[in-house]
């Protein structure tokens, strides 16, 4: 089973912007969603890519969505990978994890077993990610169902703390606190410090003057555009 060297993620995307105009750079951000089925991964992906909530069918294999966000002197091309989260699709997971800048590990706060399984997903993730290059977020989704909560905020925080993850509770339904998802500026910087455009010589770093980009990003994710 020869590894195909040509299929480096992102290698296929031309970055024309760079050659045309030095000012506008495209930063590629690969973000993957993991977790048990039914926790709301696809709903979060649709919230990210289309800023809407609609009823989703169970995902088959991996779904790949993109969204480009323009911020001051750069374009952020978000590549959002949504998975069915089922064992039967494991053969495509290496492709899925490889080179991810951010991994969103999602559970449903109203279903304890999804929280338990999140820890299995974490083990699975640890097999694939390169320490330091992937920032893992633990996400308790369906925050709007707090009345039916089976996993306390404290438990989520404890697990995140123990494993060194960022933690946030969100709701894809209401959009509530989805902006909080990327509030940890430190982690964001970390994401953007990774070579983003697939080029080896021109590495993009997040600089202080681009911090406002995060805020655009956050606003975008939260649906509060400008």
């Amino acid at each position: 089973m020869g590894e195909n060297v040509q299929t480096i993620p992102g290698g296929a995307q031309p970055h024309k912007d760079r050659t045309l105009n030095r000012q506008v750079r495209t930063l590629r951000v690969k973000m993957v969603l993991l977790g048990s089925s039914g926790v709301g991964k696809s709903s979060l992906a649709v919230r990210f890519a289309k800023n809407e909530f609609r009823d989703t069918s169970p995902t088959v294999g991996c779904a790949f969505l993109t969204q480009v966000v323009h911020v001051s002197d750069a374009s952020l091309r978000f590549e959002i990978w949504d998975t069915a989260g089922q064992e039967k699709y494991h053969s495509v997971t290496p492709l899925y994890y490889r080179g991810a800048h951010a991994a969103l590990l999602v559970y449903d706060i109203s279903k304890r077993e999804t929280f338990i399984r999140a820890q299995l997903w974490l083990k699975e993730l640890e097999k694939h990610y390169i320490p330091g290059s992937t920032v893992i977020f633990l996400i308790g989704n369906k925050g709007d169902l707090a009345w039916d909560r089976q996993v306390s905020v404290q438990e989520g925080q404890n697990l995140a703390h123990e494993k060194g993850l960022s933690f946030i509770e969100t709701s894809a339904l209401s959009g509530d606190q989805v902006n909080e998802l990327l509030l940890d500026v430190g982690k964001i910087q970390n994401i953007l410090k990774v070579p983003l455009d697939g080029s080896r010589h021109q590495t993009e770093y997040l600089t202080v003057n681009r911090i406002n980009a995060h805020f655009s990003l956050m606003y975008w994710i939260s649906g509060v555009k400008k």
Partner: peptide, 12 residues
């Protein structure tokens, strides 16, 4: 699977 309408799918 109407999920196919959400983006590009890659599946075994």
């Amino acid at each position: 699977s109407s999920a196919f309408q959400a983006g590009e799918i890659w599946t075994p």
